[in-house]
């Protein structure tokens, strides 16, 4: 992947990846930070990343691991984002109440269930692909999906249920 291809890949997928990692972590600023750091790391190995091999999965995995590492020193990161990220919050439109309720329900899930649910429902990965990306068995992935769905289903509005 050349520099131009990498910049095109970044511009095309950064928003999507931040949204996915945001649902995994529950923190938008941290998601933005870890995704950007993952892209910085990907720049050094862009020769090994090819568009056909799905570099989004590599970015997503690295961003998730960075987020897990940062949870251990969460206090300092939250304080830093409060200092540097307040201006961006003011310009962004607030999310609708249903989204807030859904994200709040996602935060109550264990992190493995949350990650598996996002990979399946947001990234459209199959059970086998999720098992390969997360390193757990397919049966465990199914169990996580079942429990996550049972926990998130009450947060869906009746209007969304009728659309099916």
């Amino acid at each position: 992947m050349t520099v131009e291809e990498f910049e095109e890949f970044y511009a095309h997928s950064v928003t999507q990846l931040v949204g996915q990692v945001y649902l995994m972590t529950g923190d938008l600023h941290e998601a933005q930070d870890v995704v950007q750091e993952a892209f910085v790391r990907a720049w050094g190995r862009r020769a090994k990343l090819s568009r056909a091999a799905g570099p989004e999965a590599w970015i997503r995995t690295v961003a998730w691991r960075l987020a897990v590492s940062r949870w251990r020193r969460r206090g300092r990161a939250v304080e830093a984002w409060r200092r540097h990220g307040a201006a961006q919050d003011a310009a962004a439109p607030p999310p609708d109440p249903d989204t807030v309720a859904l994200v709040s329900a996602l935060r109550t899930l264990p992190e493995r269930q949350r990650r598996v649910a996002v990979l399946h429902y947001v990234c459209d990965l199959t059970v086998e692909q999720i098992a390969a990306e997360t390193g757990v068995s397919a049966g465990t992935v199914k169990t996580h999906l079942f429990r996550a769905r049972a926990a998130l289903a009450p947060q869906l509005t009746p209007e969304e249920d009728h659309r099916v």
Partner: peptide, 17 residues
């Protein structure tokens, strides 16, 4: 519907950055 709601939430988060 759960997938649609989650995708909408992810897109909303992506628009905010």
């Amino acid at each position: 519907p759960l997938a649609r709601a989650l995708k909408r939430a992810a897109a909303a988060g992506g628009r905010r950055i």
